[in-house]
Amino acid sequence: MATTSALSRPTRGDLLRAALAVNTTLILTFLYLLFTEASLGAPRYALYGVVWVVVGLWILFDSDVTPASTATKRKAAAVAVGYFAILAVAGGLITAPVPGGGDGLRVAFLPPGWGPALIYGGDLFNLILMPARVVGYAALAFLVYETVIEAAGAAVSGVVGLFSCVSCSWPILASLTTSVFGSGTALAATVTTLSYDLSTLVFLVTVVLLRWRPGFGK
């Protein structure tokens, strides 16, 4: 039994589930804006946040994993957990503490998708748990889990293996872009302005590549 290694034509059930997911997300977004202090902000940023959540949930709840041995599943799970941890650090979910910034736990009502964000400021580390990032990174980690399991049972060439690793690394590299250039240059300001655009594009491309996985055997 193959995983989702090919992008098949959506069934009626797939379309109904997609429509339900979109409608539910729109309703929840409306209620969130209505009953909290959150504002829509720049429309495209709110749209990006909703896209991350919808696509992430679609991956997590609409994927079939190739049957594999318990040992293979454990190895794949270890790789996926490690990948999520790297994304969490590179993407800013977990950061180093700021001197004098340990203000405990609070909720930030950011634009839809990015909020409500659970924020914790401690002496050892900070957490910034935005729904879009948490769900999106969990979806990418799950796709990596699927990829490792499928690779264990397929004749995957070295070129395809490298291709998969490169696609996995894109979200990490995109998240680290601003830190590479620092924060005091015009280039850094441009990168920061476009970071949501860039990270969303990379996220969507990575989802397509990891879900399709061209070259993997059936």
Rank of each mutant, 00 (worst) to 15 (best):
V202G: 07
T66C: 13
G100S: 02
S39A: 14
P111W: 03
E37V: 11
L124S: 15
V166E: 06
V65W: 13
G153W: 11
P111F: 06
G158A: 15
F125Q: 04
D62N: 12
V207H: 11
F61I: 14
G104P: 09
Y45V: 05
R74H: 04
I94Y: 05
L110M: 04
I172F: 13
A186P: 11
A117E: 12
P67K: 02
L40V: 13
A76M: 13
G158R: 15
A108N: 09
V160A: 14
G91M: 08
S69D: 11
E150A: 12
I172C: 11
V160L: 07
A42C: 03
V159D: 00
V89P: 01
P99M: 07
V65K: 13
L60V: 08
A38M: 07
A78F: 09
F109N: 11
S8C: 09
A186M: 14
A77C: 00
L7N: 05
L140D: 00
A68D: 10
V50S: 04
Y120C: 05
G102N: 14
W212Q: 10
T70Y: 03
V51K: 02
A19V: 04
A77G: 00
A76W: 05
R133S: 15
V134T: 03
G121F: 08
A2K: 12
L187S: 03
L26R: 04
S199V: 12
V79Q: 01
Y83W: 05
F35W: 15
G113Q: 04
D103E: 11
F163P: 02
A186W: 14
S69V: 12
T185E: 00
W58I: 08
L33R: 02
E146G: 08
G121K: 03
A18D: 00
S199N: 08
L28A: 14
T200P: 02
A154G: 15
L7Y: 06
T70K: 10
P112M: 02
L20I: 09
T206K: 00
G49S: 06
T95L: 06
V166S: 06
P10K: 11
L176N: 04
T24Y: 12
G100W: 00
A139Y: 01
W58Q: 10
L34W: 05
P131W: 00
I94N: 00
L118I: 03
T206V: 00
D64N: 13
T200F: 07
D62V: 05
G49I: 05
L87H: 05
L187A: 12
G92L: 08
G161W: 05
L26M: 06
A96C: 07
F181V: 13
L127H: 02
G49D: 09
N23W: 09
G161E: 06
V51F: 02
S39F: 10
T193W: 08
G121M: 11
N126E: 02
V98T: 13
G101N: 01
E37I: 09
T147P: 03
R44D: 15
P111C: 09
V180E: 14
G115W: 02
S157C: 06
V53M: 06
W52N: 08
V207M: 04
F203K: 06
L124D: 14
G82I: 12
I27Q: 11
G182Y: 13
R213C: 10
S8V: 12
I94L: 09
V191E: 12
A151S: 13
A117M: 10
L16G: 02
A174C: 08
L204D: 08
T36F: 07
A132V: 03
S157P: 15
V81Q: 04
T36M: 12
V148M: 12
